[in-house]
């Protein structure tokens, strides 16, 4: 029995710019709000990894759906931009489709699935596999920006700890994992040190993506809507994942290759295909997977046993 496979090609063609719907200011937010978010963004870039409070607005979507990222994107986006939105690496999931449609509606900007063609990439919980380019801007949706929150719930005290670089308790937190499990067991939102100064949560990206934060040529902006915080990593900034000399930082590895494109270097999602326990592994980054399938097909037609588009 052949299980029905999910399509790996979310939307075939890049969507070109159209005129925005009347009745909204460009990018939905009013100009006063954009200015205050922009001032916060500029401070955030000047102090990498430090969280800047901002006057987060109610957006036409619920907290937890990326209101922080949407506000950052709205403050940054302009008519010449090409927007890509991903959710867990995929361009075709609910969150990504809705946010992309939102910006098409209120900005009329061009959108794309291709990482290489995008000037602005809003992401929930992944960094694309295709290396980012200078000039690109990544916008991350952040649920909880404060890395010390589960250690010190008071924001005032946590600010003091940041001011004093008092990050020992976070190392204790990691050490507790080592004593309990024999290794650091944080799989996502793995804490990083930005520019050798600020402890930062990289948003719930898998540990696999942490090395991509380091010395990235792209500008990386982080927005937390409910928590009303903005922070940033400028291009070419050192971002070090916390670890110990005898327990160095490692990323996830898989015994399998992607069932669609055969990639062994990308982050793989497990997909349960029936109720008999069958499963397969596919790339989480749908654009990367699709590009690889296209390349393989143009090299050798019929080489891949993939479902027809």
């Amino acid at each position: 029995m052949t299980p029905p496979l999910p399509s790996s090609s979310p939307t075939a063609n890049p969507m070109t710019a159209a005129s925005p719907e009347p009745g909204f200011n460009f990018a939905y937010l009013d100009e006063q709000t954009k200015r205050s978010i922009r001032r916060a963004l500029l401070k955030a870039v000047a102090i990498p990894g430090h969280q800047i409070p901002f006057s987060s607005r109610e957006m036409p979507m619920a907290y937890g759906w990326g209101t922080g990222g949407v506000q950052v994107t709205a403050a940054v986006i302009g008519q010449p931009d090409t927007l890509k939105v991903i959710d867990q690496g995929a361009d075709d999931t609910t969150n990504a489709v809705n946010i992309r449609r939102f910006f098409q509606k209120v900005c009329g900007v061009a959108t794309t699935d291709r990482t290489a063609e995008a000037t602005l990439i809003q992401t929930r919980h992944r960094i694309p596999e295709t290396p980012l380019q200078p000039g690109q801007i990544m916008v991350y949706q952040v649920p909880m920006p404060e890395p010390l929150f589960f250690i010190e719930p008071s924001r005032t005290e946590a600010n003091k700890m940041h001011a004093l670089e008092e990050y020992g308790p976070m190392y204790v937190r990691l050490y507790e994992d080592v004593t309990q499990f024999g290794h650091i067991a944080m799989a996502y939102d793995y804490p990083v040190m930005v520019g050798d100064r600020y402890l930062m949560k990289p948003s719930p990206i898998p540990r696999f993506d942490n090395p991509k934060l380091h010395m990235s040529p792209a500008l990386q902006l982080f927005g937390a809507g409910r928590e009303k915080r903005i922070y940033a990593i400028p291009p070419y900034t050192s971002v070090k994942s916390l670890d110990f000399d005898d327990h160095p930082f490692t990323v996830e590895t898989w015994d399998a290759a992607c069932a669609f494109c055969g990639a062994t270097d990308s982050y793989l999602d497990e997909v349960v295909t029936d109720d008999q326990g069958s499963r397969l592994w596919i790339c989480s980054d749908t654009d990367y997977c699709h590009q690889r399938q296209q390349a393989a097909l143009s090299d050798k037609p019929n080489a891949l046993a993939t479902p027809a588009d």
Binding site: R38, L42, A75, V76, I77, L219
Partner: peptide, 19 residues
């Protein structure tokens, strides 16, 4: 054009600090 001119200027200021 207050909306797009300020957006374009903001991007220049942002890029100036980022690079």
């Amino acid at each position: 054009d207050p909306v797009h001119d300020s957006q374009q200027t903001f991007r220049a200021l942002l890029d100036a600090l980022a690079q």
